[in-house]
C-alpha cells in the first residue's frame, strides 16, 4: 500500500488535505534490524480532542498497515495505545517494507462530527462504517536487506558479466536489475575475471571499471523524476547507494538538489577514492609481481 493524496466521501485528517484545522496525526516510526528481522517501534500523537476521546472509548483505533510487495507480506496491526512495538521476521520480508499509519473506525459511528472540521463541513454529520479511514499519517519505508547491508562491499552491488554482443566494444552498464550489471566485451571480461581475485589490483579495477560505471548510474538517476526514483527503490543497488550517500555524505539522492552534485566526484568517494592507490600500485612495479605470481 502506498499513501497517495486522495479524496474521501467524508473529512479525513491527513497531511495532504485541509479537511481538518488545528489538528495533527503524526506517527514516529523507528526500526531496528537484526539477524532475525525487524523490530518496529510506533509512537503516535493525535492532536484533536474528539479523535482522542474516540480512541479512549475504543471506538476508533490506530492501524499500521505493513506491506512488502516483493514477498507478498501484508499485515495490519491494530491498537488503541499510542506506543506499540511489533516484530516482523525476515522470513516474511525482503527489500522495501512500506508502513502506512491510519486511524480507523472500529465500529459504526453514526452522525460523526468534529469541532475542527474545515469551514466547508460545518453543520454536516457523517455516518461512518466499521473499517472507514478517519486519519492518514505519513508513510515510512524501511529497507530490509537480506544480503546487501553495506555499500562498501562493492561486489554485492555490481555484477560484472560478459557481453555477448560483439559489436559492443566498450563497457555497457545496465541498472534495470537488482544489481548494477556491467557488461564487458569478451576479452575484457576474461581479463577482469582473472584479475579480480587478486587483492593488490582491486583499486585498479575499481578505478577502471567501477568508478565510471557508478558515475554513469548516478548521472542517469539524477535525471529521473521522483516517481521513477521511487520505482528504483525496489532495486537493492539503489537502496544501497541511497543509504551510503546519506550515511557518508548526508546527501539525499531523492532531493532536487542532487542533480547539482558532481557525480564523478561522488562515485569516487563512494568507493573510497581508488585512483591514488591504483596509480601507486601500477607505478610501484605491479607488473613484476603479476609475472612472478603466474610462474
Amino acid at each position: 500500500m502506498e499513501i497517495k493524496s486522495r479524496f474521501y466521501p467524508y473529512p479525513v485528517l491527513s497531511h495532504f488535505s485541509d479537511d481538518y484545522v488545528n489538528s495533527n496525526f503524526d506517527v514516529e516510526v523507528s526500526a531496528t534490524i537484526d539477524n532475525y528481522g525487524v523490530k518496529i517501534d510506533f509512537s503516535a500523537n493525535v492532536n484533536n480532542l474528539e479523535l482522542s476521546n474516540l480512541l479512549s472509548y475504543e471506538q476508533i483505533a490506530f492501524v499500521y498497515h505493513l506491506e512488502c510487495s516483493q514477498t507478498g507480506y501484508r499485515e495490519a496491526i491494530s491498537t488503541f495505545l499510542n506506543e506499540t512495538l511489533h516484530f516482523v521476521s525476515d522470513k516474511k520480508i525482503n527489500g522495501k517494507l512500506q508502513i502506512c499509519p491510519f486511524i480507523i473506525a472500529k465500529e459504526e459511528i453514526k452522525g460523526y462530527v468534529n469541532s475542527c472540521f474545515n469551514e466547508d463541513y460545518k453543520g454536516f454529520r457523517f455516518d461512518l462504517e466499521q473499517g472507514c479511514i478517519m486519519a492518514v499519517g505519513k508513510q515510512v519505508d524501511i529497507n530490509v536487506e537480506n544480503e546487501i547491508n553495506d555499500f562498501s562491499n562493492t561486489p554485492s552491488v555490481f555484477s560484472i558479466v560478459k557481453n555477448d554482443n560483439e559489436s559492443d566494444t566498450a563497457m555497457v552498464v545496465d541498472f534495470h536489475y537488482k544489481k548494477i550489471v556491467i557488461k564487458l566485451p569478451e576479452k575484457d571480461f576474461y581479463n577482469f575475471k582473472s584479475l579480480r581475485g587478486r587483492a593488490i589490483v582491486q583499486s585498479v579495477l575499481n578505478a577502471l571499471v567501477i568508478t565510471p560505471a557508478l558515475a554513469y548510474v548516478l548521472e542517469e538517476v539524477s535525471k529521473r523524476n521522483a516517481q521513477e526514483k521511487y520505482e528504483y527503490s525496489s532495486y537493492s543497488w539503489y537502496r544501497a547507494i541511497k543509504k551510503a550517500l546519506s550515511n557518508k555524505f548526508g546527501c539525499d539522492i531523492e532531493q532536487d538538489g542532487f542533480t547539482e552534485k558532481n557525480m564523478l566526484e561522488l562515485s569516487q568517494k563512494l568507493i573510497n577514492s581508488p585512483l591514488t592507490e591504483a596509480l601507486d600500485t601500477l607505478s610501484s612495479g605491479y607488473l613484476g609481481d603479476y609475472e612472478e605470481d603466474d610462474e
Binding site: M1, R6, Y8, P9, A61, V63, H65, R74, E75, A76, S78, F102, I104, K106, E129, Q130, G131, C132, I133
Partner: peptide, 14 residues
C-alpha cells in the same frame, strides 16, 4: 473498497 476501508481490519463476513 481498499481505498476507503482498511480491509485487513474487517471481518471476513463483511
Amino acid at each position: 473498497l481498499g481505498g476507503t476501508y482498511i480491509l485487513d481490519c474487517l471481518p471476513e463476513k463483511w
